[in-house]
């Protein structure tokens, strides 16, 4: 497990990281998200000790790495494997040689290096590319090699620094699947630093939002996506663009636990209240350990709002936002969801 506490990094009078506390338990996947300039890359570089923290501690399995120096620090670095953005493979080494590099630099005997490299390449599904050079590999393949290299020294923590940035969605998905498998098979703790919400939704157990060098929001991904009142939950499950509500209809945004609520709730609630509900936009997603639905409905004029709300609550839905008697203007696809207007 990795425990970061009170981590601060300043350059002169500029504080880039301000008292970061973050813990990822054994075999969990933690994610740190944030906009560019929030301090994500500095956080990544401080966690793998490329930058020395101004203050605070980074402990892996209870051992504070910031207190070490020289050869002790080099040995302790084995505990944190890093997967870099765009893989950072050596261009003049083959895939296998890239994976072997940290092993050789730590004095692992040749026959063991060969065995371990074989094992790692097999694990990331790249055995058939062992003797290829990075320029002969696709971005996703390069990143698989980068992951294999990150795992070479059997670290207890794998730090993924924007490892899927710049990859296409399918490749991102395959890399995330690989990371999750590695966690499940090897029990490695993974800390993902990313600006992509898809990544968080796809693999993280815990999420923290970094903004201006501070962690402003955090929680289990399952809880955050079920919640409705935070920037993080809205960012994690953005509503798709809604069609305009029929004339006179009011728009309501709802959120619910899709595992617990009957999939027939639209018809059921409509029957109970005696009206047809218009579905303007909907999203039902299985994210890690939670199935969450977000829906924008149009409520016909004359419907008793209190009765409708009561019926929705009885069925297990949460009313996030409602607009009173206001026409929703059409908007171009791609703009933020209905909540921006509602």
């Amino acid at each position: 497990m990795i425990e970061i506490s009170g981590l601060t990094k300043s350059y002169g009078s500029t504080t880039v990281l301000d008292g970061i506390d973050l813990t990822v338990a054994d075999a969990q996947i933690g994610a740190v998200v944030g906009p560019s300039g929030a301090g994500k890359s500095t956080l990544a570089r401080t966690i793998n000790l490329l930058e020395r923290p101004t203050s605070g501690t980074i402990a892996v399995n209870g051992r504070d790495l910031t207190a070490l120096s020289g050869s002790e620090l080099r040995a302790a670095r084995r505990e944190i494997g890093t997967v870099f953005q765009s893989a950072n493979l050596l261009r003049r080494l083959t895939a296998a040689e890239n994976v072997a590099l940290p092993l050789r630099h730590h004095g692992v005997p040749d026959n063991q290096v060969r065995r371990r490299v074989h094992e790692l390449l097999e694990r990331v599904g790249m055995l058939h590319r062992a003797n290829h050079y990075p320029s002969q590999l696709s971005g996703g393949q390069r990143q698989r090699i980068g992951i294999a290299r990150g795992l070479a020294l059997k670290p207890s923590v794998l730090l993924s620094d924007e490892a899927t940035s710049g990859l296409d969605p399918d490749t991102t998905l395959s890399i995330l699947t690989l990371l999750r498998e590695l966690r499940d098979d090897l029990g490695v703790t993974i800390l993902v630093i990313t600006h992509e919400m898809d990544v968080v939704r796809g693999i993280a157990d815990q999420v923290a939002r970094l903004d201006h060098g501070r962690i402003v929001e955090r929680g289990a991904v399952a809880d955050v996506v079920r919640g409705s009142d935070s920037d993080l939950s809205r960012a994690l499950l953005p509503l798709p663009p809604a069609v305009p509500a029929p004339a006179g209809h009011r728009t309501w945004s709802l959120r619910y636990d899709a595992a617990a609520v009957s999939p027939f709730w639209v018809a059921q609630v409509g029957r109970e209240v005696g009206t047809d509900l218009a579905v303007l936009s909907a999203l039902v997603e299985e994210t890690g350990r939670a199935s969450v639905g977000r829906v924008t409905i149009g409520v016909a004029p004359g419907v008793d709002e209190r009765r409708l709300e009561q019926a929705l609550i009885t069925h297990g839905l949460v009313v996030e936002q409602r607009a009173t008697l206001r026409a929703v203007t059409p908007r171009t696809p791609g703009t933020p969801g209905a909540e921006a207007v509602a």
Partner: peptide, 23 residues
């Protein structure tokens, strides 16, 4: 970034110079 790979992986400076930089 390639030097960072060596540093983050615990290579010595000499190893980074010969194994990464010169290579």
């Amino acid at each position: 970034e390639l030097l960072d790979v060596g540093l983050a992986g615990g290579s010595t400076r000499w190893q980074i110079v010969t194994g990464i930089q010169l290579k």
